[in-house]
Design a protein around this nucleic acid. Structure first.
Lengths: 311, 311
DNA sequence: TCTTTGATATAAATATTGTTTATACCTAAC
DNA sequence: GTTAGGTATAAACAATATTTATATCAAAGA
């Protein structure tokens, strides 16, 4: 089946005759006749009742007609999308970032976006991964960085990079000089962690359970500065290192790689796909991914590029 | 634009190369290449990045691809609908009927449907017109007979017949022998009527207001048998005559045509259009319309066919 | 009633368009 | 370097949609 014949059907429905449709579509009447016949033969339904004063769409035809309109409407949508994609990006973009990511990239991203795409206005919403997924689905966000996302209708997601969280201890902690540490060694420590609504906590809980290690978590702290100060006071945590980079450089916090098992997760950029004017989203996504890749390649953001991004 | 090229794009996306898509679509690689070029030229966007190891859909291409899937999905839907239309009708049909219609046609409709389309199960829901519209929109009904409907998304409606309500008085009433009556003569009478949620009452109210006639309605009665017994006790009403046919023949109720202004309304059959398997609905709709037309033509149902049904 | 008008159907010729064939070229992998 | 697997391009070819020309039909009007 081809769109040509659907356009024919619509033309006939709207003009009430094959000849009328032919005039409207700049074709001859036999061409219309043949086109309609093609469609009817393919669907094996009589769509149009021809008579000497014109032609009427049959009851059956009206059902098919309805679908034909929907299809051609979507086709028009598609060309609109394509048009939009080649024009200068403009409009609002609502970007959701998890706490552990937002602090490190927001400023630079906003700066680059202003420079490269001055007509795009960026709204950054910082929240937990779970909240971001919800907001995305509700349409309140255009895109978000998420952890280990599963495919969802209307969303397209792309892996960006793989992060390895580390054991963070204060610089004066007895473990501070360790080059690596096994998960089962942690059962002696009094840890602080974010609560289970954070995906990192969920991951740690799952892994420690499957490894048969019981961690002593003495407090759930859903505050990044709170966790940092607790680490410095002697309560270790397992956390991505990006945001504590300065502390590590100053030596006030040590970040010890975890081995056996190795723990990592993938950061994805998930984007809503239903927009009819997606160019602003697309431009932002590109800058965002470029920025993240750059930070990782330059070693500023500890982690490695996802294989699909750096082959 | 034609579907051929959209299929090409999807094939390339799914196989990761032009040659792969060509194999899958039973075409040669240059044909695919040309098809893709056509699409890209038309949309003026590069959809696929070609390289020596295959081809990747670009970011822009993914937006277009998404729409392409939607379109071809709808095309598949359309063929399903068409298939359904030529097979033996089967399934459940939920039909909504206003009170003044249900009593007169339900039995015969069920009987005919059982005979002609034994695989179709009919559910008749009797309710007020306003309720029926709601239920239709909510998807709880497949079709309904409604009064003076306005076009709505997802519904197709077709006029069936025009009813003229009459003044019903008891056989012994002083007006019982009148051949016709003007609306302004009714201001002396003590009337009963259905409440304003019924469309007949809304119509009467609008007309009497615009004609400057104030009717004395002494009770709102939302019960058909209630109204009939009140008429017999001496309180006239304005009502369709179909359901009181027997009373009229026995002379216990007289039905007096209203003139100046003439009052009428059109009964429509409204059908949901979003079903993927509409043949049962369609078959039922046809029987229903045939039945109504028959009753009108034979004079059993007072009214006249809509001009579009009886040219 | 006969003619005219405006519609559709059909067949053959034509034009367009998509497809294949043949070839060149590119790049990653061996 | 050679090979394998990919894409691009041009010309020949095939398929198919379109036009032209004609036949047919039904309703409206003389």
């Amino acid at each position: 089946m081809e769109l040509r014949d659907l356009r024919t059907l619509i033309g006939i429905a709207e003009s009430g005759s094959l000849s009328g449709a032919a005039r409207k579509l700049n074709l001859t009447q036999p061409a219309l006749s043949a086109s309609l016949k093609r469609l009817e033969d393919e669907l094996k339904v009589q769509l149009v009742a021809r008579h000497s004063r014109g032609a009427d769409v049959t009851e059956e035809g009206k059902f098919v007609l309805q679908k034909a309109y929907a299809i051609l409407h979507d086709v028009a949508d598609m060309t609109t999308v394509a048009q939009d994609l080649i024009e200068e990006p403009i409009g609002d973009v609502r970007l959701g970032l998890p706490t552990t990511v937002a602090g490190g990239i927001t400023a630079e991203l906003v700066h680059r976006l202003c420079t490269r795409h001055p007509l795009v206005r960026l709204h950054v919403i910082e929240a937990m991964s779970g909240v971001l997924v919800e907001q995305l689905q509700l349409g309140r966000l255009d895109m978000a960085i998420l952890f280990d996302i599963q495919p969802m209708a209307g969303l397209r997601s792309e892996p960006i990079l793989i992060e390895e969280p580390r054991l963070l201890v204060s610089g004066s902690h007895e473990l501070a000089s360790r080059k690596q540490i096994r998960l089962d060694e942690l059962d002696q420590l009094e840890l602080v962690m974010p609560s289970q609504v954070h995906s990192i906590r969920g991951l740690i809980d799952r892994i420690s359970k499957s490894e048969g290690v019981s961690l002593k978590i003495i407090a759930d702290v859903d505050s990044f500065p709170g966790i940092v100060s607790l680490v410095q006071k002697g309560y270790p945590t397992i956390f991505p290192t990006y945001l504590v980079r300065e502390h590590i450089e100053r030596g006030t916090i040590a970040a010890i790689p975890l081995v056996q098992p190795r723990i990592d997760w993938t950061l994805h950029l998930a984007t809503r796909q239903d927009s009819v004017r997606p160019r602003a989203s697309l431009a932002t996504a590109r800058l965002l991914i470029d920025l993240c890749s750059e930070l990782v390649v330059n070693g500023i953001w500890p982690g490695r590029l996802h294989p699909r991004r750096a082959p």
